[in-house]
Design a protein around this nucleic acid. Structure first.
Lengths: 372, 372
DNA sequence: TCACAGGCGGCAAACGTTTCCCTGCCCAGA
DNA sequence: TCTGGGCAGGGAAACGTTTGCCGCCTGTGA
């Protein structure tokens, strides 16, 4: 016969970690029902304040911590956010991770971090993990989105945040980084110093963001009517190694550029290192400008002139966009695009080209004059 | 009257994310019970192979992914590991995080990363978060454990992994880094080159690991019968800024040391930067030796001689130790200590002191001879 | 004093699993 | 043919919450 009456289990398996306290213990102690405890914990205003304080007292006494998985199971929201970066070992990303994490946790979210390392298999498993853990939303901060990854995420109707570009669908938010502004400032800064021969070391051009940065550079140069010969566009890898290799390529040219802009700071740092090995001095013989403004940049020798893209703004926007997607009545639920501005930070790796005495103001000359 | 009979709820709240499939859907499709699906998914061998393949087919067809929170709720194991580091922006840690994450996820665990930033409030909230999420174990890789943090964790009887030292309790595993070996190699390397005046820039000595490193240095020096004057022991912060400041302190001395060992690579890099600003050349005028062997070290100018502490070994040991603590019948469940070795990596930031012509073999002279 | 309204708080369903227990089937042995 | 044993698979309890529904209590107005 089928057992229809509730027969209590003989040997309930021992699972609870010692010291774990459930809502039931609190309810018992406070002399209320578990429903009331739950409502008190969630600060539902209908619960009587005297009762609530009794509950809070009990919570304190027994050391209760709500079980997140049970919460997530019933509420359907895990309060987990996914953060996908290209490679955690690139110094830009830890800074971003740090900001993102600080903000997320202060708002009651936990962060699962994944690093794709540009490896499709890794990305694939990362996606599966995020789906299984039921993340509430994912920020894809890879600066070069893999198409199939996007598709997988999109069909689950996840709140998603991309950088630079993403499919135009509901629930997809895009952080539009205004590369143009910062890069134009950089180019104009160099041009004002008298540079006419400016090379660009890009990132891997198969990815979207490096491509956009290169285009912004070319556009700015074009606006000034300066031609960029093909040999002055070198493809790097957004790593220090790539910067070294690319700079060596430039050094092998018959005619060196007088300035080099780089698609990110690690590339610029690589370029500096390649130059240290030559008799050439930075900035007197060649000016270097980076992009990102990572922490390391200001400690370079000379301190790196670079275009700042604020990690903090990126993180703030990403979290806000995600929450807008997660919470149906968020004030900005309809907003699709979030603008991130960039701006030039002038340090000492850029000055006027040797031999040229540009028409510049006294103060500018002081500021950009050769260091040491 | 109290409702005792199961009255179906009128308006069940809509929670499931579209596209989400539960075990019930699979069971329906395969024409089996959910118990069988569960058993098939968990590869319980008693389930008939024909049935199992029908279940797997159904899983594939409906795109089923097990819900981790439900699993965790019932099994009492979240398959989440906590990883606590001091500061994620210190380049050593991302490398560690990367290794740890790769290993953990390949074994079916997810990683929650927390960065204490040496801030007790941050640490406190971090602990609460980890407890709420019900992590199966925590690796505390901060190289300087806050005592109250330890206590909190210990009383929950968590599997815990510490670096260097931890309370001697069940469930607590300690990764013993053999600083002595690597640091002795470093000191002997310098001594063999002819150095007798070797300074040490330590980390923050309030923390345990920096203290141990300093002691290892002093012990090695003592073994060689070399006295270390107090002014040759400078306290840094394990950051580049700290390295710069500490090196400047050394530079202000009447009599410079001929070599400087540093408690970590970032400090050494800071020291290099401080030296770049002087006429002194590394390694001809002063030798610098780091500790950690972070990725950046080999790209310094000159490439940094340093003591390697392998991130990979640390991560491997940490994960293995955690699993030993989590899984009751793990082969190494009883092992308390895990040894991590260190070794010197000679690059080009160390050579014989100027003016001294040490008795050394021809090959050694070639190897350590002044670069450039 | 009674009727009624409003709101606090308790009961129990539901979330998606795992796993205990038990049934029913199959097969071997007598 | 009957009995017994082994075992595959199904039913349902349990994990710790949130939340819909409803009862009871209190307060107000006639």
């Amino acid at each position: 016969m089928i057992r229809t009456v509730s027969t209590p289990r003989k040997h309930p398996p021992e699972r609870r970690r010692p010291g774990t306290v459930s809502i039931r213990d609190v309810a018992l102690r406070a002399g209320v029902s578990i429903a009331t405890v739950s409502r008190a914990v969630n600060r539902i205003p209908t619960v009587d304040s005297e009762l609530a304080s009794r509950v809070w007292k009990a919570i304190d006494e027994v050391g209760y911590l709500p079980n997140t998985q049970a919460r997530a199971l019933v509420s359907g929201r895990s309060r987990l956010l996914g953060l996908i970066v290209s490679e955690i070992t690139n110094p830009f990303f830890p800074e971003l991770v740090q900001e993102f994490e600080t903000l997320a946790t202060s708002q009651g979210y936990e962060v699962l971090i994944g690093s794709t390392n540009y490896d499709p298999a890794r990305t694939e498993s990362l996606m599966r993990r995020l789906l299984q853990r039921n993340v509430d939303g994912v920020a894809v901060m890879t600066f070069g989105v893999e198409e199939d990854l996007v598709k997988k995420l999109v069909e689950r109707e996840f709140p998603l945040v991309f950088v630079d570009a993403g499919p135009n669908l509901p629930n997809i938010h895009v952080l539009k980084v205004d590369y143009g502004e910062g890069i134009r400032q950089g180019v104009q800064h160099l041009a004002a110093l008298g540079h006419r021969s400016i090379a660009f070391i890009s990132g891997p051009l198969a990815q979207r963001s490096p491509k956009v940065r290169l285009d912004a550079f070319l556009k700015s140069m074009d606006e000034l009517g300066i031609h960029v010969p093909a040999e002055h566009q070198v493809e790097g890898t957004h790593t220090m190694e790539g910067g070294i290799t690319a700079m060596e390529q430039l050094l092998a040219l018959d005619k060196l550029p007088t300035a080099v802009m780089c698609s990110n700071d690690m590339t610029a740092i690589g370029a500096l290192h390649a130059l240290y090995r030559t008799p050439l001095k930075v900035p007197q013989d060649i000016s270097i400008v980076g992009f990102d403004d990572i922490h390391l940049a200001q400690f370079m020798l000379p301190p790196l002139t670079t275009v700042q893209m604020s990690c903090r703004s990126l993180a703030v926007a990403a979290i806000e966009a995600l929450r807008a997607g997660i919470e149906p009545d968020h004030p900005k639920a309809r907003q699709k695009e979030w603008l991130i501005s960039t701006r030039l930070v002038v340090r000492q790796s850029s000055t006027f080209p040797r031999g040229s005495l540009p028409a510049m103001s006294h103060s500018a000359q002081q500021r950009h004059g050769p260091a040491r």
